[in-house]
Design a protein around this nucleic acid. Structure first.
Lengths: 145, 145
DNA sequence: GGATATTAGTTGCATTTGTCAACTATTATT
DNA sequence: AATAATAGTTGACAAATGCAACTAATATCC
């Protein structure tokens, strides 16, 4: 048991490092990692709201609000007040927002390609299977929508 | 290929979230995540130096320097100038530093235990195997000491 | 051997990132 | 209607991190 915990922690350290090196979505400068994740989640989540983002990323709602304002200034998103509850604003990517997100994603794709470029096709299969197993085993927990 | 990349990226998002929720080493307040990693790595790496930490974590050396100074003030580390090269200072944990690190580690252990507490022993085995596979497949790259 | 370049670490300043608390507008509760 | 709760905003602030100039030491090159 103790030993298993150590192995899991070792993996976590390892993977933190991998992700740091990948810096997925860290493209030069136009978005911070957090901003990129928010942009992505906005497109991913149906009828996304500030509150959802704040819960999902466990980030202060004031901070989320500021990021969204910036996005709005840059015309990456638009906000539509809910007709049911006028406190709520749904967030949607504009076409420019989708474009920018796509650029980020393309860049992230390249980094992942780079990461696996020396791994045989078969081993990439093993890699993904392993990832899926981990996800399946851990995922039922930590659900919060 | 494209699909595999998407799966890997999905796993990365998933695992970022897991680690966020775990917040390993984020114990209340006495250390930030970065500080905790640095404390750990200081104990982990033989004859650790500021330069090593800066490279290893890809963090500004000025920033590292400040964290180390704080650690020194708190008497968690001590620095010993190398006799071969007096620009270099080796960093060692004091007994107080080891104590604090141990507290962090105990807390991190508890979180990992919590994470796997509803998973059968056998599945924990699968989990760890999967982690090890991922590590083995990715690790030959990204070596920098 | 001295001039010059490089390196490890430090320091002050700037920026980025994030938190907190007070506030507004709106909806829910009683 | 009165009060409480909720979604989001805002400004002041704190923490985390980067940058560039600096010092001291060592390495390199003539």
């Amino acid at each position: 048991m103790e030993e298993q915990i150590q192995e899991i922690k070792r993996f976590n350290r390892f993977y933190i490092k991998i992700m740091g090196i990948l810096s997925l979505y860290a493209d030069g400068s136009s978005f911070s990692a957090t901003e990129a994740m928010i942009l992505y989640e906005t497109s991913n989540k149906k009828d996304c709201t500030a509150k959802y983002l704040s819960n999902y990323f466990v980030l202060d709602k004031g901070y989320i609000s500021k990021i969204l304002r910036k996005f709005e200034k840059r015309e990456l998103i638009e906000r539509v007040t809910s007709s049911k509850d006028r406190r709520v604003q749904y967030i949607y990517l504009t076409s420019k927002g989708r474009e920018e997100l796509k650029k980020l994603q393309d860049r992230a794709n390249e980094k992942v390609e780079e990461m696996i470029k020396d791994i045989s096709e078969q081993d990439v299969g093993v890699l993904i299977e392993s990832m899926n197993k981990i996800e399946a085993l851990l995922e039922t927990k930590n659900r919060r929508d």
